[in-house]
């Protein structure tokens, strides 16, 4: 399959990239890992007149922890996130997520920023970032803005990013004491989108849930924040009964569509099962 023709730009600095995006507006697309964009172009589902390749811009792929925040550069490859000791030690839910995205070869190219900026509710990072209460950093020629991830997704393949903006990084709040998280994905085979995926991040004090973040993958037109389950859990003692009730509420909030992976009812029930399991695993990880 041959992609449509495009003009290629490989700026060496972020300012040069932003200036190109400013010049070409909606006719330009940013190329990061390319593992979603290039397949779309090969299928003629995307035909940008200009490609702005940001892979030659240094400094966009760092993972750093400072002032209570984990900063993930948008060009961080999924493989690098998966291999990061900082992530493995302090952010198990992020490690879980990176490890189940596509397959190992795709993860060598695919980027964390791209997984979010593509705006696909079937992608895995959005649910996790929703559960973690992360923020997305966007740069344009006019300056920088920070967008809470809960406000970032506007529809299938549509995000709050404007045509002149580049997602430069993700900010994840450092987990407070007594917190734990997990991401669980049901997939038919490696490389498939989730039949259902659930991210859970809990803060627990003495068996009582202080705060819960729950995000659902591929369960609606945008990544779903299971707010009623989150609100139910806050202040609850975590028992089999309350965990089951939270799972039931999360399943109610899922709006999956039937496809080859299963019926809407089946997927909703898988959200229920995975939410229960993810809460239990998050609890085990509370440290």
């Amino acid at each position: 399959m041959i992609p449509p023709r495009f003009h290629y730009h490989a700026p060496a600095t972020l300012d040069a990239a932003l200036s190109l995006l400013n010049d070409y507006g909606p006719e330009a697309r940013v190329l990061a890992g390319g593992q979603s964009l290039i397949p779309l172009m090969k299928l003629q589902l995307a035909a940008p007149a200009h490609i702005v390749d940001i892979n030659r811009i240094p400094g966009l792929d760092a993972i750093t922890e400072e002032n209570g925040t984990l900063h993930i550069g948008s060009l961080t490859r999924e493989a690098a996130l998966e291999a990061s000791e900082t992530v493995r030690a302090g952010y198990a839910i992020l490690h879980d997520t990176a490890a189940v995205i596509a397959d190992p070869l795709v993860r060598n190219m695919a980027t964390v920023g791209g997984n979010l900026a593509h705006g696909d509710p079937a992608n895995d990072h959005p649910a996790t970032m929703v559960a973690l209460g992360a923020q997305v950093v966007a740069r344009s020629a006019a300056g920088e803005r920070v967008i809470p991830v809960a406000d970032f997704f506007e529809g299938p393949l549509a995000t709050a990013l404007g045509p002149g903006e580049i997602l430069t990084g993700i900010q994840v709040p450092q987990p407070p004491a007594g917190s734990g998280g997990a991401y669980l994905k049901l997939e038919r085979k490696v490389g498939d989108y989730a039949t259902a995926g659930v991210a859970v991040f809990l803060t627990v004090n003495d068996g009582v849930c202080q705060q819960a973040g729950i995000g659902l993958t591929n369960a609606g037109p945008v990544p779903v924040k299971a707010a009623s389950a989150e609100n139910f859990l806050a202040g609850q003692r975590l028992t089999e009964e309350t965990i089951r009730e939270a799972a039931r509420l999360a399943a109610q909030e899922a709006q999956p569509s039937a496809d080859l992976r299963g019926s809407a009812d089946y997927k909703r029930d898988m959200v229920r099962v995975l939410t229960g399991r993810a809460i239990r695993q998050a609890l085990e990880r509370v440290g």
Partner: peptide, 22 residues
Amino acid sequence: TTHCGACTILLDGTPVKSCTIF
């Protein structure tokens, strides 16, 4: 379509799918 890996090459030593890179 980025699934099978028959086109795998090493790019600076890292295995990637060459059907999904320009």
